[in-house]
Design a protein around this nucleic acid. Structure first.
Lengths: 337, 337
DNA sequence: CCGACACATGTGATCGCTAACATCTCGGTC
DNA sequence: GACCGAGATGTTAGCGATCACATGTGTCGG
């Protein structure tokens, strides 16, 4: 018995102290009706006195369900995915779920499949995949149909539960802002060609130009890094006709700012620049960057909501939700010289 | 039986197919000795054919142990903590552990205690706390002694298992670099006063100045944001005698760069600036920033190693490890004008 | 007054796995 | 030839919770 007192208290211990059966303790814990109030209070007092905590492994064994959500995300410190993940962990925590993140180095079918398998090993209640490109989206075809799954920033054409920032709307607004500032056209430095975010932003930029019959210049293709923005900026800086640039994220914009500076093209005097994401430092770029701010907290809440809907319903949906970003006007846009 | 085929295969199913007992299947899964090779192969074939996956809930119920590590971290997208967390999730995944992150909004005793409780509810194998300030470190006093625990970037004076970047060494090297570039002294824009990282960096900066009997100017206290760096920089920009600034992180440095620019103080011509963290964009600041780069992957590996040491040994240690950062020289340091 | 139903609580089996203990066989040594 | 120990495998119990079913009591309506 001495040895027995060393393990964590179980329901049987609570039951013994409260003078009821373990079933009654279970009823109290799970807020079942038809438990006499006096009994309920006695059980709660026993729980408190013993410092009892439910054993989730036992519960998971019986019910076949866990309070764990698996997330598949690329190993990255990119501001967008990092913000989204942090917001999702908070939202899930508030809903009583733990979040386990399965990192993948590259977004290919094999790596994502392996991460999903690890989550299935954990018997997660559902899976969220940050699936920003085509190969990531393809990998989801392997996921068993019955497993609750939501993709974030995934393929808008795929018929799976999806939550995404309205990239096109954000890009449309950024481009329109530049056009309304007086620019004849707007050049675009895009993110990776195969990322849906980047594709959505190209689409929004293009649509805004076409809406006013402005020239649609060729897209300057890049990745998400400031380095890529710098390279693109070096080229754009040499073209006197470039007076407005919409960069697909803030770090690209930073690289563009740097290249313009090196070339003596003043921002916003000679060239206006707009970014996307509104990283906290954007306000302190030289000059402070006008940018588009996605609502990561809202995306996280929608993602959790969509996932738990499937967990509760026990079936998949094809529901999808978009979250509108907002334009943050700072000092990197002006009328062309 | 039709209903029975709908559940996931269990060891009893594998046993039946392989013609052995469930205990023998358990022995094969756990690589016990004294299993005939022919039997082992038959069991493995049955596992493969059935697509059997061990039920971790059942195993956790029996052994009282899980393959889950809890992390307590503040809700933040700061590059340092974000990089560390991402690296840790990867390291843990490679070691066969899932990671569940408990986010706290503020680093106070109550929030951290609640996050630790949620992890204990999950019966995690151990806990890693990113405990960057005094209140976070204090909260760890409440953690039961038997629970494996490692703090990262925590209180260097506290006798608990700790892994940290060698902040002082990094700051020492950054400051020495500026002094060797010919500056009479180096001003410092610090992080939050109560963060151990920031304190360590102040100490390293101070020690480097004292090592050459240089003047030790008053610390310009800030937080981690570019906004705070900008404010500090506005003041430093007005002081002609300021020719060298060591900022406690890259975003502070960005703010300083911006303030200098506004005031016409050219970097590095008039003022040299060094940061800390080496965010990916640092190379594209104007000018590209000289900075100190911590090795987050190494910190993550050391943290996991220290934690698993406690899990295996079943007892706490007082071991601690520091990981040296390196100076990355770019273009924001020059001889004073 | 009796039967039915609702309320309140209890009993026992089971989920899937591990560990302790049991059983059988074979080979080596005395 | 007998005995002992090691190898190989099997049997049983139990971890802690939930669920299905059981039992007892009180109230209300016929």
């Amino acid at each position: 018995m001495d040895q027995k007192t060393q393990r964590d208290p179980a329901m049987t211990d609570v039951a013994r102290l409260a003078g009821v059966s373990h079933q009654t303790v279970s009823r109290v814990l799970n807020d079942h009706p038809n438990v006499r109030e006096q009994t309920r209070l006695r059980v709660r007092a026993a729980i408190k006195e013993l410092g009892y905590r439910p054993n989730r492994a036992a519960r998971a064994l019986v019910t076949g369900k866990t309070q764990l959500i698996g997330v598949v995300a690329q190993n990255s410190t990119l501001y967008g995915p990092a913000s989204l993940l942090s917001a999702f962990e908070e939202a899930a925590g508030e809903a009583g779920f733990a979040v386990s993140v399965g990192r993948v180095k590259v977004l290919d079918r094999e790596s994502i499949a392996a991460a999903v398998e690890r989550h299935r090993d954990q018997r997660v209640a559902g899976i969220v995949v940050i699936a920003p490109n085509a190969s990531a989206a393809d990998a989801l075809a392997d996921v068993p149909a019955g497993l609750p799954l939501v993709t974030v920033d995934g393929d808008p054409d795929r018929r799976t539960p999806l939550v995404t920032v309205d990239q096109a709307a954000g890009a449309y607004e950024a481009t329109t802002h530049l056009l309304e500032a007086g620019h004849q056209t707007v050049w675009h430095v895009s993110g990776p060609q195969d990322w849906f975010d980047a594709a959505g932003r190209v689409e929004g930029w293009r649509r805004a130009l076409e809406a006013v019959s402005a020239e649609v210049p060729p897209v300057v293709a890049a990745d998400w890094s400031a380095a890529a923005g710098y390279k693109a900026g070096q080229m754009l800086a040499r073209m006197p006709e470039v007076t407005a640039v919409f960069a697909s994220n803030d770090h690209l914009a930073l690289g563009v700012l740097r290249a313009m500076h090196e070339r003596g093209r003043r921002v916003p005097h000679d060239v206006s620049v707009v970014g996307f994401d509104d990283v906290p430092e954007a306000a302190y770029f030289i000059p402070p960057l006008t940018t588009v701010r996605p609502d990561f907290a809202a995306v996280a809440r929608e993602t959790l909501g969509l996932l738990l809907e499937q967990v509760v319903e026990g079936e998949s949906t094809t529901s999808r939700r978009t979250v509108a970003p907002v334009l943050v006007r700072r000092e990197s846009v002006a009328f062309p010289a």
